Computed example of a mutant assay.
Amino acid sequence: PVEQWRILKVLSDGEGHSMGELADAVLLNHPTLTKMVDRMVSDSLVYRRQDAEDRRKVLMFISDRGNALCKRLNSLAVSQEAHILENYGGKATGELKRLLENLIDAAS
């Protein structure tokens, strides 16, 4: 699912993110995010680790397997964007991106 890709994309920075930070970044509510992350942990795409500075806090990280999947999905997205650009032109594609970014900003 696209939501999994968004989670992987955020975690690919290697910084480690709390569930709250992740929920805000990927625009998912906490229960939905928790279920999705649990599945991703089961699939060895991500893992949880206790924060070294605050042991009450749990951080999420991307695994090597998750990183490989994220790179593959990023490559597919770039290919799809090139296809859209080729078929619809730069102006229409730019307008579509702008509208989608406005929609995302309005949702957050």
Rank of each mutant, 00 (worst) to 15 (best):
K71L: 13
L103F: 10
S42L: 12
S12V: 02
V2I: 04
T93L: 09
N67C: 08
D38R: 11
A82K: 08
S63K: 05
R55I: 02
R48D: 03
G20M: 13
P31I: 00
A82R: 03
S12G: 06
I84R: 07
S18I: 00
P31F: 03
N67L: 15
I84V: 12
Q50P: 01
K71Q: 14
G90V: 04
K35Q: 11
A92R: 13
F61K: 05
Y47I: 00
K91V: 05
C70R: 08
L99D: 13
V10K: 13
S79P: 00
L99K: 14
S12K: 03
S42D: 15
S18M: 05
L76I: 06
S79E: 09
G16R: 01
K71I: 09
R55S: 07
R49L: 10
G16E: 06
T34C: 03
R49T: 00
G66S: 09
S108P: 01
K91S: 10
W5T: 11
Q4V: 00
K91N: 04
E86N: 14
N29G: 06
D105H: 04
A52E: 15
A68D: 11
E21S: 13
L69T: 03
S63N: 13
L99H: 15
V41Q: 09
A68G: 04
Q50H: 05
L100D: 04
S108N: 12
R72I: 13
H83T: 11
N29W: 06
P31T: 11
G89P: 09
I62T: 00
H17I: 03
L103W: 08
A77G: 12
S108M: 09
G20N: 14
M40P: 01
F61G: 02
L45D: 02
A52N: 02
T93Y: 12
L33T: 02
R98P: 01
G66I: 05
A23G: 09
V37S: 08
